[in-house]
Amino acid sequence: MTPDWPELSDLLLDVDAQTLERRPVRRAAVLAPLERHGMREARRIVDGLPGQDVLDEAAIDAVLLRAHTELTRLAFEFRNGVRLVQLLRPLLEVLRAVTPERPLRVVDIGCGLGFVVRWLAAYGRLGDDVELLGCDFNPALIGLAERLSVEEGLRCRFRVANAFTLERSAHVFISTGVLHHFRGDALDRFFERQAGAGARGVLHCDIKASWAAPLGAWLFHEARMREPLAKHDGVLSAVRAHPAPTLLDSARRTGRPLRFALFDGAPSPLPLLRTLNTVVGVDAAIEQAFLSALGDGRQRLGAFT
């Protein structure tokens, strides 16, 4: 596996970012990059999907729903909600002091089944003045996330939407496991569009690139996942994880006016404890206040530039 291999979940969903219209996925279009990179396991998975010329949409949704349900389990185990709330609570505390608008809007980009948003609604204790919204391009995932939040009585919402073009902008953008899906220019464009959307703080958590990440991802996906696509993309995600300099360079070059730092980004010879890192971006006006609000967590945060 190499970082330029595409993830199957990216190939199996084709949505127009402007109109949000879902386009049919042609088998040949999915197979071409797999052939090019010699991705035999991925090819086997696609061969198992029904549909002749065009892959069956319902079958794709079913696979992605199962894969994301398994991911939810992993997110529970690795306490992704707790991980994020360590940074989100101080950020909201600072924003409360400097922003008169209410509610404070937190938008999760590429939320999938909305585990983090639902967890924050259930356990985050973020305050009644915080609105939680999950956005994703996949209608099946968003539909299920919405139904789950209603069924469990959670104060959060989900929308099939481009998080950067919402009618009312977010105060804070968050994401988990999303950044590595954007490579090269696409990563620059991600930070550029985010900057254009006007948030005052961003927290993007993703797999921390290290020699151990692919090994760990393989181990945990073998041990915990059943869905072949989840296993395949899970390990590939770790291979594709951006090194700290790539993330920070892209964010700082294209994500102005926010200033960026990496939380848990310090390299370690034995990277077992910090398996994920978070790109933190804040408005320069709240940088000092955020650092103060972070307390001891400040030691795990690099310098803002």
Binding site: R79, R224, L273, T275
Partner: peptide, 18 residues
Amino acid sequence: HFDLGVLATVLVLGPFTL
């Protein structure tokens, strides 16, 4: 405890399942 939990998972619970 967050860090102890991650260590327990990474060092034992995951590998031992496998």
